[in-house]
């Protein structure tokens, strides 16, 4: 199985703060990797490095055939292959749901306006929001905004999707609707890396769990590893009621 994402010994510091300290893991095609760990352990940073939002100090990152660590990386072509969804949705407030989704296909892929609109309606249907196409972000609930944000990424037909705590800002009942969309995606064969605090979800959907601690991959394995942690830190983390 060829790896879609491969991190090898990745190092990253902000000033004197060492945030990633030799991180390595691999995600194969169609796999779902759940990255867990205490806040501040470097999960977001790892995700941002995969998408070249941060440059790394050492090691290599290969994503869908792009050498992300290379100074000559073509960022735009990387980002055509990688979709990312943030905790704070980051929809464009001046555009409707539909326009948010149409923007990248029409700007980047030069898809015609009517095709882009069809595409937008298609992905909105997939996230269950077909009827909200003309709504502006502020007219939508948090859960709906997050689903539009997922749809916006999907519209670019990425080979890999990154999710950074996408449900952390949501009420429990809204969390469910977003998780369901992600579960459908996983079942549809999308390769995904998700940073999450939803342990039950990780256990159910993830083919691989990556536990990060102090900038290192502390433990990694199938979802069942959460039931029998090998390290005291993971035991602590799982036991802390999350």
């Amino acid at each position: 199985m060829s790896a879609v994402v491969k991190l090898s010994n990745v190092h990253k510091s902000f000033g004197t703060n060492k945030v990633l300290d030799g991180v390595s893991f691999e995600v194969g095609r169609g796999e779902v990797a759940a990255v867990i760990g205490q806040s501040g352990s470097g999960k977001s940073t790892a995700l941002r490095c995969i998408n070249a939002l941060e440059t790394i100090d050492g090691g290599t990152i290969d994503v869908c055939g792009h050498a992300v660590h290379d100074a000559k990386l073509d960022r735009r072509s990387l980002r055509r292959d990688v979709g990312i969804v943030f905790q704070s949705y980051n929809l464009f407030p001046h555009l409707t749901a539909e326009q948010n989704i149409m923007l990248a296909p029409s700007c980047v892929k030069k898809v015609s306006k009517s095709e882009a609109r069809d595409l937008a309606h298609d992905v909105l249907r997939r996230v269950g929001l077909a009827e909200k196409a003309g709504h502006f972000p502020e007219q939508l609930s948090g859960g709906q905004q997050q689903r539009v944000a997922i749809a916006r990424s999907l519209a670019m037909q990425p080979k890999l999707m990154l999710f950074d705590e996408v449900t952390s800002a949501l009420d429990p009942q809204l969390t469910g609707e977003v998780l369901k969309v992600m579960e459908d995606l996983a079942r549809g064969g999308m390769t995904m890396i998700l940073v999450t605090h939803e342990m039950a979800f990780a256990r159910k959907v993830a083919s691989q769990v990556v536990y990060m601690h102090k900038g290192k991959v502390w433990e990694t394995g199938p979802g069942s590893m959460l039931d029998s942690p090998k390290t005291a830190e993971l035991a602590d983390f799982v036991g802390s009621g999350l």
Partner: peptide
């Protein structure tokens, strides 16, 4: 800054990001 990043992550060019996302706001 998150708006700049979101636009960047959608593979927009700097010019598209400026004219379609940042300037309108």
């Amino acid at each position: 800054k998150t708006q700049w990043e979101a636009a960047e992550c959608l593979a927009l060019t700097p010019w598209q990001r400026m004219t379609r996302v940042i300037l309108p706001q």
